[in-house]
């Protein structure tokens, strides 16, 4: 399972590296989001700093959605999906591989957005380890949901339908992630933070759902 996951993940990442969509489109896009936030929310001094955890997660979610749409449009061409199964890869492995590839791309994007927030909004981010830890867990949870729905939605309407399906389901993850960040920014740091715990629950639960159902989604 893990070997298959590694194969799929490295395949996806290799495609992304060669196409340079991440660096040439996704990162500039997040920069645009940050700039738009800056002049739409700059009505009150310090408002951007107060809102920065929420803005970070909204920007990340948008970027992740695009990454997910790309990840599955790759498989849509030439029935590559069926190809993966015919190679004898395990469906759980394909799922994990897809998730790993999305998580790695998202991590790069989130790092970029994090720097953007610190530099452009002058948001003081302390406790970087905890921020990164919660961001990582939240990203896993969101990616798992995204990959399950991404495989479920096929055809022309994928790009418009995927966000509609994913956003309500990941809303609690996004809420927990924002609250965890707010706690850390305010200096309330502990591993026992309930929001971090909730993020772990979501990551495990959504991951388990994906591992268990991905086979029937792909093979139908």
């Amino acid at each position: 399972m893990f070997k298959d996951a590694w194969l799929v993940a490295s395949k996806d990442l290799r495609i992304e590296r060669r196409s340079r969509v991440l660096t040439n489109q996704l990162l500039p896009f997040t920069l645009v989001i940050l700039i738009i936030f800056a002049f739409t929310f700059d009505t009150h001094p310090n408002l951007l700093v107060t809102l920065s955890p929420g803005l970070f997660w909204v920007a990340s979610l948008f970027a992740m959605t695009i990454a997910l749409q790309r990840s599955f449009s790759l498989e849509a061409e030439n029935q590559a999906r069926d190809g993966l199964l015919l190679y004898g890869l395990e469906s759980a492995g394909i799922f994990l591989g897809k998730v790993v590839a999305i998580v790695i791309q998202s991590a790069i994007v989130e790092l970029f957005i994090g720097f953007g927030i610190v530099i452009l909004y002058a948001a003081p981010l302390h406790e970087v380890v905890f921020l990164a830890l919660s961001a990582f867990t939240a990203t896993i949870g969101i990616s798992c949901v995204g990959v399950v729905f991404g495989a479920m939605v096929t055809g022309r309407s994928r790009d418009s339908l995927l966000p509609l399906l994913i956003f309500p389901v990941v809303a609690p993850v996004l809420l927990s992630a924002t609250k965890a960040w707010e706690d850390y920014v305010r200096g309330k740091v502990s591993l026992g933070d309930p929001w971090l715990g909730l993020l772990v629950v979501f990551a495990i639960a959504f991951g388990a759902v994906g591992v268990l159902t991905f086979g029937s989604i792909l093979e139908e």
């Binding site: 479920m152 939605v153 096929t154 055809g155 309407s157 994928r158 339908l161 509609l164 399906l165 956003f167 309500p168 389901v169």
Partner: peptide, 15 residues
């Protein structure tokens, strides 16, 4: 409301 609107949209989008 949105979750089930999504459900109906998914049905519509899957021929």
């Amino acid at each position: 409301f949105l979750l089930y609107v999504g459900y109906l949209a998914l049905r519509r989008a899957t021929p």
